[in-house]
Write a protein that binds this DNA or RNA. Structure first.
Lengths: 222, 222
DNA sequence: ACCTGAACACCGTTCAAGT
DNA sequence: ACCTGAACACCGTTCAAGT
């Protein structure tokens, strides 16, 4: 089996990037090779190099394609509520494209589309009275948290993974690990999934809300 | 050049894992191959398979070796101060072994040594009155933040990187990106480094401190 | 202009053979 | 018991050649 596994569609940068993204999300970053992708597209390997200078450039384009799927429109509500729905939208695009956090570790996201995620959050913080430097730093914390969460624990642990972690915990000498050894269930529950994501998001929003209150108080005293 | 580039030291799992870690930290995760590592150790490639069943198992051992370099001893002070110094120690081991966050994306850290990082933080939270489930979730937030920060922005952006990001920002249509387009300096400053790490850590500690106060108030009302 | 096979310098790992 | 070369099935990318 070498070519024609797929109907040969018109090739262009966008079609190739989307096919790469699909493969990345389905099979993981490790599994994407120029050869396998070309094969899937029914083309010779070297054909891809007519559209992208290198695999790296193709991966960049795949990131661009993934970020296109971020959708969020301004909602009513407090700063806290709006930041919450925004971060949930960020989580959603990362869940839709599980390869995105992994790709992000290889190169910065300087795709214009990536800024579509930061712009509205930034605007919310500035509107709430955050000075630009604090707004930037605060958004970065939210972003690092979201992408880190989806990289290190996008889903609840599977029963098999739970068992693995619990087995490791059981091996710990209890006198050296008194806290951890006694709470295997709580620890495995915290290792991924939506409830954990929301817990941390609410925690961070606690702090952001408190600071926003201070900024707005400072403004009304002027 | 094939072998004997290095003096041939006694080989064992630990020596191999440490050599792998050194290579990983120096040249990046991409650059470590069984062949190059064996060469560096002055051995045949297949010799390594006498000590590790697979590259994956070797990487696990490298993670174990890296985590050994985590050092923290309990300090005096408030919960906030102690969590702060603890997270700084976590940051330090991640800075010492920049490959660690990257390795962590490939497999969970179930090395016993990895729990040496969580145990003291967990104990602090439990002692401060956090119920076990909240303690686990709260620690996980700190951990995801620390490791995410060191993965996505361990250092300040270099001048070249700054220029790259600013160039990307300048390409954005200003009417669509009114917030972001006007604060290139604040944004690039937030993309990595120690000041950003501490900013986010303090933000999260704000929220943890507030919750600790609530837990301790609840306890004294019993 | 667009496409691509062959070749080069790499991988991880199996297998059979060396001491 | 410990080590390892050859071989297999892969990589990304260059180069020269096809239409």
């Amino acid at each position: 089996m070498s070519k024609g596994n797929r109907t040969r569609a018109a090739l262009d940068r966008d079609a190739i990037a989307r096919a790469a993204l699909e493969m990345l999300d389905e099979e993981g970053i490790e599994a994407l090779s120029m050869r396998r992708l070309a094969d899937r597209l029914g083309a010779g390997t070297m054909t891809l190099y007519g559209y992208f200078r290198s695999k790296q450039e193709l991966l960049d384009a795949a990131v661009g394609a993934a970020v296109e799927d971020f959708h969020w429109s301004p909602t009513e509500g407090t700063l806290r509520e709006r930041l919450f729905t925004h971060q949930r939208a960020v989580r959603e695009v990362l869940a839709l494209h599980p390869s995105l956090p992994q790709l992000r570790t290889r190169q910065a996201m300087v795709q214009p589309a990536a800024f579509r995620m930061s712009e509205p959050a930034m605007r919310m913080l500035l509107d709430a009275g955050f000075p630009p430097d604090d707004a930037a730093r605060t958004f970065r914390v939210l972003f690092v948290y979201a992408i880190g969460s989806m990289l290190f624990g996008p889903e609840e642990l599977t029963p098999a993974q739970r068992r693995g972690v619990k087995a490791a915990l059981l091996l710990l000498p209890e006198d050296e690990f008194p806290a951890i050894a006694r709470m295997p269930d709580e620890l495995t529950a915290s290792m991924g999934g939506e409830a954990q994501f929301d817990y941390g998001l609410e925690l961070i929003l606690d702090a952001i809300e408190a600071r926003a209150a201070r900024y707005s108080a400072a403004r009304s005293h002027q």
